[in-house]
Design a binder for these strands. Structure first.
Lengths: 207, 207, 207, 207
DNA sequence: AATGAATGAGTTTTCATTCAT
DNA sequence: GATGAATGAAAACTCATTCAT
């Protein structure tokens, strides 16, 4: 997971040399694998440095603690998810199509980066602040899109935050079920089509 | 959280005396508080026994490990959530109304028992099997209701598992946002009305 | 150094069984040796438990930290020094003779228990509060004796705290020089006689 | 604490340039503050270089180890104490007055440089050789003065090393009590007067 | 069954010292 | 000489689990 600008570095010690920058990057990448595979508590600093190929002590040159690198990682990943969604939304389309495209992108990203799903979820227990921030930001972005759609007359005018959270929950659980657990059960497009359809007309019989 | 029949005890040592039954109950109740407050990893057996007012060693008379009591608890709670929903669905109503009632009940339950929410969620990392089981069971129940609604001609005939998971995700995230975090931001009825409305007609402008 | 009532136990966990009391005692005795030989910083918990013949973890059943057992020890020893002095002062004697007897006792005790000298001294850096308390208490006891001597007309009436500290400093340094470092250079009685003579008449030529 | 010629540098690497001399001086000054504030073990090389405003690695250009700079410092300070005393003894006076002047000077110096007191004392545990040397040298200087006084007929002829150590102990403890801890409780002159009086006549009632 | 002491593997963290630039 | 990153040995401490009573 290299997203270019490590959001994490803010809270931690910034390397001053190129060599330092490389070591920091290696640590973050190794941590993503370690946390993804073993979870926060079973992961160990020495596991991270072993994967990164650095000495144990070098970890503390860049991070104060296991929590600190985890937080750095969550913020990195939250950013990466956002970026992936933004790219999927590059081309203009109707509001409903945009939601469908966003879900497709998310499902693909989740299938590709199952560790991201796991790490962000585990943040609920390890770094609640980041967890909350991630979902509040994501929810706010969805709400923005809904309002944009309403402005264009494509969506109802009374949509509010709860609608955004409902959509986000849908997406996340469909990601859990079909991208993380049951990859192959149903292709991303199909899942996104079902959800898109639900958003378009609801589930009641056609009136 | 006393749900009467500890489903969990199955996997553990059954008390033979009345005194033993009381101790077991005290341990489970104490564990719910300890895990709810501190999370699985920060929780300690000695914290549990201290809250339960028993000796440290007594814990192992009833449970094989920290994981074992956690699992017992998760299954207890999964059961409790199911029971709460079932009660809310006692009276006959239209399919859409049933979903709304189920969400209202869930939101109320979650606000009342925030620790349940946390413990079940943490199971994703501590006891993935129980976690999965909880959501698969819950999803299956929702799907049952959807099919029932379809049979009665109230809901569309093409609803499938993905619809159930979409609804479940909606519910869970609305619970997180409005019951666990933002109790008071929006009353349960209002949240459930919004979600019900979404299910009824989607979010597009009225055709 | 077994002084009967471990003053230390106050701040730490009290054993509830006889077995526990034995373990605690073994730890304190082992710590006295370990700290005496290696000093606070070079001493290690595992060194203490190895000497005590207990498991590493058992240490933490009774003490919260290395600092905690050190403090316990310092207070134990401060008490032991007091007791040794008190015994030497049991029989009635003139005020000057009492001071001489006290110094003799102290020198003997210090020669016998060099580790006590070291540990109390190191408290200046490890546990300043105990260090201060030790010397303030000791100084106060000396002052009491001086006042008693003044009341009986044996000593000058204008003696004050500074006199007590001067005497205490004399004693401590003579202990360092002749009991701890140079045992054998000069016997305790001879050192005490010199100091006693100084107190009796000063160092100026006889008027 | 700049005493001009760092006695310590002898054992370490001598700077060859003016710039090097400045860096060395900065390190010693920083170390005095760091050791004085945090004690030897809590002090860190990086703390010293941070205060000195140099890079961590530069430390090893001038000193071989943490112990080495500590030793350098102790010898610097031992020298500084000696110098302070010598200055106070510049003018001719009676033997008793000289001792009083020496104590006054010491008390003033100690109040002014509390860190010196602490660092020299801690040497007992960090660099016992320097500690011993400091007190043996100091004791020898006092004994010299006592003998000089005896030669002039002002002091008794039978004064020996133990008298010098008794006086030194008095001085040190009065310094601890009234200069380091209780600055203000009693002015230096008053303390020195009491001690001088004790030396002059002892503490017994006037014969 | 209950009690509470004993165990020791396992992890994080520190920091003096070395090294590459 | 100066810089700052890298190293890794060493220790404190935790706590689930076992055991003796």
């Amino acid at each position: 997971m290299d997203t270019g600008t490590p959001a994490a570095a803010d809270t931690n010690k910034q390397p001053r040399t190129e060599r330092g920058r490389r070591t920091l990057r290696k640590l973050l990448d190794a941590a993503a694998v370690e946390f993804g595979e073993r979870g926060f508590h079973d992961a160990s600093i020495s596991g991270i440095t072993a994967r990164a190929g650095t000495a144990l002590g070098s970890f503390y040159t860049y991070f104060d603690s296991k929590e600190a690198i985890f937080q750095a990682l969550v913020r990195d990943m939250s950013e990466a998810v956002k970026v992936a969604a933004r790219e999927a939304l590059a081309e203009p389309a109707s509001a409903l199509e945009r939601e469908r495209a966003a879900l497709t992108a998310f499902l693909r990203f989740a299938a590709e980066h199952k560790e991201v799903y796991r790490i962000i979820d585990e943040a609920e227990f390890v770094d609640p602040e980041s967890y909350r921030q991630h979902y509040e930001t994501t929810g706010a972005r969805i709400l923005d899109r809904l309002r944009e759609g309403a402005r264009k007359g494509e969506l109802r005018a009374d949509l509010e935050e709860a609608h955004a959270w409902a959509i986000m929950g849908m997406n996340v659980f469909l990601g859990l079920r079909y991208a993380v657990w049951g990859e192959g059960d149903l292709p991303a497009e199909r899942v996104a089509a079902i959800a898109g359809d639900l958003l378009a007309k609801g589930i009641a019989v056609d009136r």
